[in-house]
Design a protein around this nucleic acid. Structure first.
Lengths: 137, 137
DNA sequence: CATAATGTAACCATTATAGTCACATATATG
DNA sequence: CATATATGTGACTATAATGGTTACATTATG
């Protein structure tokens, strides 16, 4: 699987679940659609469960289902649940403390990144899981 | 250095150059401000040179300087030059071809990602290198 | 010619991510 | 209750991306 695809896999997994929202889905079945390992799915869905997006049940006839209607799950909810640090852009951690330019860069870049990222969140909030399922047809 | 910090390092390097735009700057001096290796800087600035943002000269008294005024260099120019694929988000590459949900996901996710990324570009275009230098004071 | 710089290939180190195995725990059902 | 079937998670391995380093050819100055 490609690097940094957690968000894409999470949306895909949720789409599988939401596409037949009346039944429970096992990590094995979901992993089958994505061609990955069931454990990868269980770990990812554990994060989504903690965020109140899905719920799981153990044992026979167990599996995952949505914890609320697909129309109430925005991609922003999914993003927050899955991307731990939330940073699309990253700062560099080292710098020369004696350089006046270097000493200002961290806070300047933080400001830029914050402004940029604030532009994408409304777009993620605007799109719901129901919109995604609608596009599957 | 942190992962995925190319953009941050590029902006930092350009800020060092633009802060004293009248002189040439060696990769050694720039690397000193960022506390990294000169080769890392040369590789990064080579990309910026191809994009027409900086120019370099070899030999004694050589080094880097801006190829155009700092006010004409937007962070979007820098981003394009430095982030090869341009994808903040990544798709997952494997899927089950027999699953109707999986078969639709790639194009659906591409659409979502494209819409999201289109929101940040105006913000990057709005900020110039001169704005950054201005914040150094 | 000596010195000082970039450009780049080749390689190593580090880190992040995905993938896998194993197993404790929980649950439905005959 | 026994069995089969799930999740949850710890521990480990594999892979890929990124940065760092060394080395050296090339180029420019004086």
């Amino acid at each position: 699987m490609a690097a940094n695809s957690k968000f894409a896999v999470a949306v895909h997994a949720l789409a599988v679940i939401a596409h037949h929202a009346d039944q429970r889905h096992t990590s094995r079945a979901i992993a089958g659609s994505i061609s990955t390992n069931p454990v990868v799915i269980r770990r990812l869905l554990a994060q989504l469960a903690r965020a109140g997006i899905v719920e799981s049940s153990h044992g026979a006839k167990g599996g995952f289902r949505l914890a609320k209607p697909a129309s109430k799950v925005s991609l922003h909810d999914v993003y927050k649940a899955v991307e731990d640090c939330g940073a699309l852009f990253a700062l560099h951690d080292k710098k020369n403390e004696k350089c006046p330019v270097a000493c200002r860069m961290a806070s300047i870049l933080e400001g830029v990144f914050e402004r940029v990222e604030s532009k994408i969140m409304p777009e993620l909030k605007r799109t719901s899981l129901a919109d995604i399922v609608g596009q599957i047809g």
